[in-house]
Design a protein around this nucleic acid. Structure first.
Lengths: 234, 234
DNA sequence: AAATTAATTTACGTATACATTAAAAAATTA
DNA sequence: TAATTTTTTAATGTATACGTAAATTAATTT
C-alpha cells in the first residue's frame, strides 16, 4: 500500500532532505498549533500514519519526540492525546518564560554588542508599530514573538533558546485565541524600546526589571482573558 | 537471534511493566551519567541494540527521546554521540536552574503550607548535616539534590519540575567529578535553613533572594573548579 | 603517484510481519 | 438481571527485511 509513490505523495511542500520522521514532527506540530488536531483529542498511530501517507514507524518516532516536547501524551491503548492547556498551565509557562527572558535581558546587557546585533530586534519593533497602525494583530503577534526570541538570542544561553521555543509553540495556540479579545497592545513597544536601551547601556539590572514587569503584565492580561471568557482548556 | 529469551535476559533488575524503549532510555541514561559511555563517544544503533539485548527499533526510539532531552545527538552515519559539557554548558545550566529554583522558592513562600509539607525538605537537611559530619560527600550530594528538588516541588510549577530533572541529570556528571575537589559545603545548610524559614514566614522576596545567592555561589564554585582543574569537557 | 571514477560496504530510514496484551464483546453462571 | 469468566478484537511494541544513500575501498585514468 504505502509504496514509493504514496510516500512521495505524503511529502509535500517544504520537505526535501527531511526524513519522514522529521516531516511527521513538523506536520503534526503545525496541525496541533493551528488547532486542526483539537486539544484533548486522541489519535491512533495507524490513523496518523494514513493521514500522513507513511507507515507507523516514523509516526511513532514523531509522537515520541512530540511527547518529549510536551505537546502530546502517548497513552498506550488510547492513542496519542493532544494535550490541552488550562489557565493554570498557561500561568506555569508564562512564569517560566518571564524568568528566562528576564535573565536573557540581563545577560544581553552584560555583553559587548554592536549596533548591528540589534538589527533584527529593531526590525521587529518597527514591524510591530506598523502592524499596530494597520490594526493587523496577527502580524503584530508574529513580530512580538520575534522580538522576544531575539532577546533570548542576545542573552546567549542556547538552552534557554530551546526552552523558549518549546513553550512559545505551546503558548501560540492560546495567544491566537485571545489576540482579538485583548486590549490593543500600544504600550508593549515602549517596554521593548526601554529594554533594548537598557541593554545598549549595559544596565543589566534595569534591562532585567523592565522586561520582567513587561512579562508579568502580559501574563496577567492573558490569564485574565482566558478566565473571563471561560477558556478552561485551550 | 533475539527471541523471547534474549529479550528477557536484556531486561534486568527494576524493569517490570516497562517497555524495551523505556528500559533502553533508563539504562542508557544511567550509563551516560555514570560515565560508562564516555562523553564525546559515538555508538551505532546496532551496537547499543546488541549491548541491551534488543532490536534496533526500541533503541532508536530511546535515542530519539534522549536526544530530545539533550543528552545525546543522533548523527545519521556516525552513530549516537554522547554530548559532552564544557564549563560554558555548565554555566548555562546553572543559570537556568538558579532562575527557576529561585522562582520556586518565591512561589512556595506564597502558598499555605503546613509543617508536614516540609518534612522531606527537613529530612534532606538533616541527612546533609549527618553526611557532612561523617565526611560522606556522596550522601551529602544526594540529599542536597533532594532538597533542591523539594524546593521545586513546593513551588508547584510542574514544568519547572521537568526542566529541573532534565538538567539535574546532566549536571550530575560534573558534580560527581568535582565533589571531592570542592571545599567542604559547610555553609550550604545555613542557606537551606534560611530559605525554608523564609518560605514558612511567607516572605517570597527573601526566599527568592536567599536561594538565588546560594545558587550563584554554587555556580561560581563549580565553574571555578572545572576551569582550575582543566575539565574542558565533562 | 595523484586524482578521478566506479564498485562495495554499511548504517540508517522505513515498511511490514508478528507477538503481546489491554480493552471490548460474548458467553456463562449465580 | 447482574456479575463473572471466556473469547475475540484491535492497537501497540518489537523484530526483521529491505531499499537507500553515505562512506569507504578499489579501480581506472591521467
Amino acid at each position: 500500500m504505502a509504496d514509493a509513490k504514496t510516500r512521495e505523495a505524503g511529502v509535500k511542500g517544504s520537505a526535501k532532505g527531511k526524513s519522514n520522521t522529521q516531516h511527521a514532527v513538523s506536520v503534526l506540530k503545525s496541525l496541533i498549533l493551528e488547532n486542526r488536531l483539537s486539544s484533548g483529542s486522541n489519535h491512533l498511530e495507524s490513523e496518523l500514519a494514513e493521514m500522513l501517507g507513511m507507515s507507523r514507524t516514523p509516526v511513532r518516532e514523531a509522537t515520541l519526540i512530540l511527547e518529549a516536547q510536551g505537546l502530546v501524551e502517548v497513552k498506550p491503548r488510547h492513542g496519542v492525546r493532544i494535550l490541552s492547556l488550562s489557565p493554570e498551565d498557561m500561568a506555569e509557562i508564562y512564569d517560566i518564560l518571564t524568568e528566562l527572558e528576564s535573565l536573557s535581558a540581563e545577560l544581553a546587557a552584560g555583553k559587548d554588542y554592536v549596533e548591528a546585533d540589534f538589527a533584527t530586534a529593531e526590525d521587529a519593533i518597527r514591524r510591530m508599530d506598523e502592524a499596530l497602525a494597520n490594526e493587523d494583530r496577527e502580524t503584530w503577534a508574529v513580530a512580538d514573538e520575534l522580538f522576544h526570541s531575539e532577546l533570548v538570542r542576545l542573552g546567549g544561553n542556547r538552552r534557554i533558546g530551546n526552552i523558549f521555543r518549546t513553550y512559545s509553540d505551546q503558548v501560540r495556540r492560546a495567544r491566537n485565541l485571545t489576540l482579538n479579545l485583548r486590549p490593543k497592545p500600544t504600550k508593549s513597544n515602549d517596554d521593548h524600546r526601554r529594554v533594548l536601551k537598557a541593554i545598549r547601556d549595559g544596565d543589566s539590572e534595569r534591562a532585567r526589571e523592565i522586561h520582567r514587569a513587561h512579562r508579568v503584565q502580559a501574563k496577567e492580561m492573558l490569564i485574565g482573558i482566558l478566565e473571563q471568557y471561560g477558556f478552561h482548556n485551550v
